[in-house]
């Protein structure tokens, strides 16, 4: 606390916004695990964008085979070994970051937008609108998410955008329920009453008072869910909807390599580690973001 106060000693000369950023980063740094998480997430995102350009065997990404080198264990030549058709697993894992991460993130972003919108409207305006929206949400929630996503994806046809949409349409109810609950407790806060007493309209109250105060649980849930969404993307790839081999994707690689276990462990371990690492790092980063976004949550 005292450091925060001192660091803003010259606050009057700086812009308030820059001070907020500095303070936010200060809070984030307080937990080393958050920084580790952030670093790994940034690295993974860089891989997602540039992975295929730095892969040592780019030709393997386009489906080229090298059967003579199949099931090579990890070595200086093939860092993560090779798979059943002799492709370099390191190259595939690098390239796989794009589809796995970006679709996982896209699913959660779309689900958050839909869910938060519905939840906030239901919670803030209440009465019959709340009743209608939440009963519909409950209805979607009763359907098993993966089965629903399969049905939607099967109906839309197998492609990556359709898979993202299908998962998002199955994923939003959790966000809607959480957002509604948060809005219900936030709109009863005295500062919301104070804003109303000053003559503030619904738009101002929603954007200035309610949304900023419900972002932290949403962001925490988002960062947790990105990991599970990556798993869900992999699951859909496994059953042949969405991503298909030979497109490199961690989940697909993992499911294909099931039959290689336990002898050729490296074909499964490295894609699995990639999934593990991304889930973990998104979690750590989420914790750090919560510290930044919620000034009240002090350890």
């Amino acid at each position: 606390m005292s450091e925060v106060v001192q660091s803003t000693g010259s606050a009057a000369t700086r812009s308030a916004r820059r001070t907020n950023w500095a303070r936010g980063f200060y809070r984030f740094r307080q937990n080393p695990l958050s920084v580790v998480g952030l670093v790994i997430v940034v690295l993974l995102l860089l891989l997602a964008l540039f992975g295929e350009y730095i892969a040592p065997y780019p030709e393997h990404l386009n489906g080229e085979l090298n059967v003579a080198n199949r099931f090579q264990p990890p070595s200086a030549e093939f860092w993560f070994g090779t798979n059943e058709v002799g492709q370099d697993i390191f190259s595939l894992v690098l390239a796989g970051a794009r589809i796995s991460l970006l679709s996982g993130i896209a699913v959660i972003v779309v689900a958050t937008l839909i869910g938060t919108f519905i939840g906030v409207i239901a919670g803030y305006f209440g009465s019959w609108l709340d009743e209608v929206l939440m009963r519909f949400t409950d209805l979607v929630l009763t359907l098993p998410a993966l089965i629903l996503a399969m049905a939607i994806a099967a109906g839309l046809g197998p492609s990556i955008p359709n898979m993202i949409l299908a998962l998002a349409l199955a994923w939003w109810p959790g966000f809607a329920r959480m957002a509604r609950g948060e809005v219900l407790s936030t709109k009863a806060e005295l500062y919301v009453l104070a804003a109303k007493a000053q003559g503030g309209g619904n738009t101002r109250i929603l954007t200035r008072h309610i949304l900023p105060n419900i972002t932290s649980p949403i962001i925490v849930k988002m960062s947790l869910d990105v990991g599970f969404a990556i798993l869900a993307v992999a699951s859909l790839g496994f059953i042949g909807i969405g991503v298909r081999p030979p497109t490199p994707e961690w989940g697909v690689m993992l499911s294909v390599s099931r039959s290689n276990l336990p002898h050729f462990w490296w074909t499964a371990i490295f894609p699995g580690m990639a999934i593990f690492l991304s889930v973990l790092s998104f979690n750590f980063m989420g914790d750090g973001l919560r510290d930044v976004f919620d000034p009240r949550a002090r350890r």
């Binding site: 308030a16 500062y191 000053q198 003559g199 503030g200 200035r208 900023p212 105060n213 000034p295």
Partner: peptide, 21 residues
């Protein structure tokens, strides 16, 4: 404690009625 929005700086809090009106 409850009547000030914890996410708003003091400047924004005091400025709010002036922005509304």
């Amino acid at each position: 404690y409850a009547s000030l929005n914890p996410r708003m700086s003091v400047r924004d809090l005091i400025a709010e009625p002036m922005e509304i009106h």
